[in-house]
Simulated scan of single mutants.
Amino acid sequence: MAVRASVEYFSDAKKLDQYAKNKIGNFNNVSKNFDSNEQEVYVIIIGESTARGHLGIYDYYRNTTPLLESINDELLVYNNVISPDTYTIATLTKAFTLGNYENTQAKFEGSIIQLLNQAKFKTYWVSNQNPIGVNDSHVTKIGLGSDKSYFLNIKRAQEKTIFDEVLVKKLDEILKEEGHKKVIFLHSLGTHFNYKYRYPESFNFFNNDIPKSNFKKQVVYDEINAYDNAVRYTDFFINEVIETTRKRNVKSFVLYFSDHGEEVYENSEFYGHFRDENLTKNLYEIPMVLWCSEKYKISKKIFPKLNSKYMIDDLFHSIADLVDVKADEVDSTRSIFSEYFKERNRIVRDSIDYDVYFE
């Protein structure tokens, strides 16, 4: 089993090399109506290991998202979004390509970055994750399809690393560059273990508190407190991205989602997101939040279906819809932002019907 998995991993990695070599893909009848005088800036934040249930904006009992809550009336907060799997490669290689649980091999048939390039956007991939780790190299290959890619961190997530605000500084630099049509992907470390390394000391907010948990141990309390501090820092980071984008006063949006969730001693006595552990909702339930500028709202109508069942293996189609790019391969029924969106079965871990399993 291990040998077969290893062979498959390296085989997939070789196939994904195409994304850096062929940056426009092979999409058919691509169209995008541009106003040459209007600036467009679209930012997509890829979160990491963040369970929806730990965000105050989703009614968590702790105040983990004070800044997002302060602009709640400007946000579309999606309440029923899940990830198709519990690790980065399995989720993002579907989310950013034509791949989905019905056809996993379609992940080699085209990426959202290729589509954006073909539609004449200038694309950027800015990552605070180690580009050569086992967990991230497949995703890196998709990111290398962008016009410009930056990898700001060479350490593993388990180590003490630079914080996600470095992505905000790079975003600000990119926004000052020439070019009117930009899509910028920010790949954050989010709340990835080791949780205590994901935030500066000034965000050590939940310190000696005793959090709610069925497991009454100090080590449990320490991990939950550290995780919630990391969520609170993520709130700061997302807000900084929104405010940096807002200052440009252009047609823009910021879309945030997490690649998968995390179990932190709530439904099971463990923390992390390992695929072979017991299934819990926290492994799959993820936040997804959209902020749009006033100029964007004037030109583009979004149909907010905040409680609809949605899985991010369809994110390719949803992003294409948000930036108003059309192609034969784009399916509006798979975009949660579209009036034509249709709910579908949500199959996780390759074969489990999520909504039946957790009913």
Rank of each mutant, 00 (worst) to 15 (best):
V139F: 12
I89E: 14
A106E: 09
I82F: 15
Y87W: 13
I89D: 15
Q105R: 03
L76A: 11
N63G: 11
T64R: 06
K141G: 14
T65R: 06
V139L: 10
K182W: 08
T65H: 12
V139N: 09
L152G: 10
S70I: 12
L98D: 03
N80M: 09
N63F: 12
D85A: 08
V126L: 05
S146V: 00
Q105T: 12
W125M: 08
I71A: 12
D85Q: 01
S146C: 13
V126N: 01
K107R: 14
E159K: 03
D172A: 14
N80I: 04
S137V: 02
L76C: 13
W125K: 02
N117H: 03
N100A: 12
I154H: 03
Q114K: 05
N80D: 11
I113L: 08
I71L: 10
S70F: 15
K120V: 07
S83E: 01
K122R: 04
Y101A: 15
K107I: 04
T88E: 09
N103L: 02
K141I: 02
V168K: 01
S111I: 01
T86V: 08
N63E: 14
Y78D: 08
T140I: 07
I154G: 14
L76F: 15
T104R: 08
F108L: 03
N130R: 03
Y87I: 09
G145K: 00
I162D: 15
L171P: 07
L67G: 12
G133Y: 06
T161W: 01
K141N: 12
N117K: 01
K170T: 00
G145P: 00
E165R: 00
A95H: 07
Y78N: 02
A90N: 09
L171M: 10
I174M: 07
E165V: 08
D85Y: 05
E109W: 00
V166H: 05
V183S: 04
F108R: 00
G143W: 02
I174C: 11
L75D: 14
N80Q: 11
Q105L: 09
E74N: 10
I71H: 14
S127E: 08
N79H: 13
A119G: 12
A95Y: 11
I112E: 03
D73N: 15
A106T: 00
G143F: 02
T86N: 05
G99M: 01
I71E: 12
G143A: 06
S137N: 00
N135C: 09
K181V: 06
Y101Q: 10
G145S: 00
P131V: 06
L68R: 10
